[in-house]
Computed example of a mutant assay.
Amino acid sequence: MKVWFLGTGAGRPNKQRNVTSMALQLPDSESGWWLFDCGEATQHQLMHVPLKLSKLERVFVTHMHGDHVYGLPGLLSSRSFAGGITPVTLYGPAGIKSYVETVFALTGTMLDYDLTFHELEEEELSTVYDGGRFSVSAGPLVHRVPCFGYRIAERSTPGPLLADKAKSLGVKAGPLFGKLKSGETVTLEDGTVIRPEDVTDGVIRGRVVTLLGDTSPCDMSLTLAKEADLLVHEATFAAGLEEKAHEFGHSTTVEAARTALAAGAKGLAMTHFSGRYSNEELAKLAAEAAAVFPNVIAATDFSSVEISRPLPDREGSGL
């Protein structure tokens, strides 16, 4: 599983970085990917990474500011030209449906696939998608307009199947092996119940990725980022500019690091940098955060972060 940074700038593009967009590339066994925010020219940025527009499955918008949505109608339109025919679901704040449909109506845009909208309500925390292997929760952040952060959680699965042990308990190789590997409990012909934890080597913990929209420090950021393998947090301004950051609903580098530390996150990727900072200055911004939370990077356009599946936890109490 990998996060691609398609745009890492705030407000407007410059020669070194485009406006905000990120992509979550699903595990190798999955064929698709998800998009988070879609600033202007995101479809151009996609040409520089190994993601096919036709394989896009879901779009999650954090808020309706232009640097996060101006690229959306064009990208959705181009997906048809790229051979995309499978459905796409779009999640975002109230108004996202009207925005996209109005642009399509005025431009005569027709899609070759079904586009479904899921507008979010400003609740404390809610599950907006549950697809079996992954679930996505959304929660409201602190910004100048309604804005959300997203927590993508992968379900834990049994570790490697201990085939010899399963056979010794009467499980025949075949479909029952497959069910146990996928975490299902099976019942043998004689009524014996075999649980996955009885015949597997520990538990493989599911990964968690938290992608926040624009925000000042808040409790919801901590909730969404709790023990995340990767937290993606905006860092619009350098340390010392907290007052200016909060005036516009943003955070500084040190505040992003404090959130990662308080949430118990394992890694932090900072993005959404003000145009006042050149890419050469990003090392300084990363160093500010690293003084609080060492495992941090300052993301650049087209960079990526791999989130590896952990080894089985042999002391886990179950799925």
Rank of each mutant, 00 (worst) to 15 (best):
L106E: 12
A163P: 07
L53M: 14
A286M: 08
V203Q: 01
F273E: 02
F5D: 06
R151I: 06
P175F: 14
T102G: 15
E184K: 14
T215L: 00
V209L: 15
G139S: 07
K284L: 06
L76Y: 08
S31F: 11
H118R: 13
Y277Q: 01
K97N: 12
F177S: 05
R155I: 01
D201S: 15
R17C: 05
D190A: 03
S182F: 06
G74K: 00
I152F: 14
L35Y: 06
L56I: 01
A291N: 12
G11A: 03
C147Q: 12
A94W: 14
Y129P: 05
A228F: 00
A23V: 00
T200N: 07
T20K: 11
A23Y: 05
G178P: 07
L76H: 11
P140K: 10
G170D: 07
G92W: 04
E119K: 02
V208F: 12
G178M: 10
L51M: 02
G159Q: 02
E124P: 15
E119G: 01
V305R: 10
G132N: 01
I85F: 13
V199S: 03
H68P: 02
F248T: 13
G159A: 02
H272R: 11
T300A: 14
L222T: 09
M64I: 04
V296D: 07
E123T: 12
H44Y: 12
G95Y: 02
L176Q: 13
S80Q: 08
F81S: 15
K181M: 04
R79V: 04
W33V: 07
E189Q: 13
G74A: 06
L141T: 09
S317C: 13
Y113V: 03
R195C: 03
K165D: 07
A238T: 15
T259D: 12
C147R: 15
S126L: 15
A166R: 06
L231Y: 08
P140M: 06
A260P: 12
L26S: 06
A298M: 02
G9L: 10
G149L: 10
P87M: 00
R58N: 03
G249E: 00
S29T: 10
A166Y: 05
A289P: 09
D301K: 11
K2M: 14
G149W: 08
I297S: 05
F148Y: 08
L180M: 06
P158F: 01
F5S: 01
T215H: 05
D37H: 04
I85S: 15
S156H: 07
Q43V: 04
G240D: 03
V145W: 02
L169M: 13
P73Y: 02
I204H: 01
A94S: 14
T107A: 15
G83D: 00
L125D: 03
P27G: 07
D214Y: 13
